[in-house]
Write a protein that binds this DNA or RNA. Structure first.
Lengths: 189, 189
DNA sequence: CGAAAATCTTAATCATGATTAAGAAACGCA
DNA sequence: TGCGTTTCTTAATCATGATTAAGATTTTCG
């Protein structure tokens, strides 16, 4: 059950058998239905989610009422509202399944306890967050250098299988434009 | 000399006197002039920079030749191209002083050695990167929810002293619009 | 199966902010 | 002090993508 997470961790740090068991005791496995929420705006977000299967979206509601997706959670990626998690503030985001999904949940207090028992995990998360931040920097390039149409083609080329799995209006939201505009782009070919 | 960095680290993890001395041996202090580059596009970026005084800008050159600033480096903030640093790839960015500045430099190989000697620093950087990633998530809200004019007013309200210190065209670049448009906004009042 | 909900498309009009091209003002340094 | 470089402003035209509104299609689920 917990194998996918342990094997992900071991890409970064080796684990003894005992450490693996400790980890298994601190995380929960969770199966969610399509449209189920993990947390919503206004409520403090007190956990991180590791996606094994399925797909999540994290979004906020803009001033004009439109949903803006800022991240998809797919296989082997940790996702959370890190401002809320770090500073115990109410979340600014909604985290929702967009497919039936399987996750691991690591609560904030469990994470802290886990660091005491398995200090190596500080190193694991240090690397994970470093990569997440690196990815955020790279994303900024695409989002400020490409036009809407270019962003779509770039994304469709890099993740051809992923765009089949989600509704187009969600892709449009993630790419920062309207579903109508996405239709227009697609009609060109 | 190294005091500002040690005191920043100690906001997150306590340090013994010996640990402080080890750290001092692994980081270099660097004074740079206005316009001096720390790294440029194409060259691998092999260090992180901690700004004590002055101001840096990290930017890339867009397809159309325009400079796009993605981050300013100011007091007590680590700055680097984390994709280049993590994966040993050529940097996508330029990091340049926009004021005479004082920095600490932590080279990649030194950082790794430092983690061996002072494992606590894994925890420090784990927290630093977690916060950096959190800030990147929050920035996404402002950049996708606010119009150009709103971004300017928001930024001017939050950092009134900072906007006095840098040329307006750099602020425009950071906020994602042209200097001409910034002039137009300012002319309204 | 059938109805309601979810998703996608088209087209007309509109707004934000880019581009271009000047010129004006401020600053930096010899 | 003066001259060149940087920085800032104004205004006209233009393009990307938003908005609005409607209808068409597909999916879901009782």
């Amino acid at each position: 059950m917990i194998a996918p997470l342990l094997s992900h961790i071991q890409k970064y740090v080796p684990l003894t058998h005992e450490e693996q068991e400790v980890i298994a005791q601190y995380v929960q496995c969770l199966t969610v239905k399509n449209k189920q929420y993990l947390f919503t705006e206004g409520a403090p977000c007190s956990a991180q989610y590791f996606v094994i299967e399925g797909c999540l979206r994290m979004y906020f509601i803009k001033e004009n009422g439109v949903e803006q997706i800022i991240q998809f959670g797919i296989d082997n990626w940790w996702i959370s509202d890190y401002t809320s998690l770090t500073l115990n503030k109410p979340s600014q985001f909604y985290l929702q399944a967009v497919q039936p999904s399987k996750l691991f949940v690591l609560k904030k207090d469990k994470q802290e306890a886990l660091f005491e028992h398995v200090p190596k995990l500080e190193s694991y998360f240090r690397r994970i967050y470093q990569r997440a931040y690196a990815a955020a920097q790279t994303r900024q390039i695409y989002f400020s250098d490409l036009s809407g149409e270019e962003k779509y083609h770039h994304f469709a080329t890099r993740f051809p299988d992923f765009i089949q799995r989600i509704p187009q209006y969600m892709l449009a939201s993630y790419l920062g434009f309207t579903p109508e505009f996405l239709s227009k782009i697609r009609a060109k070919k």
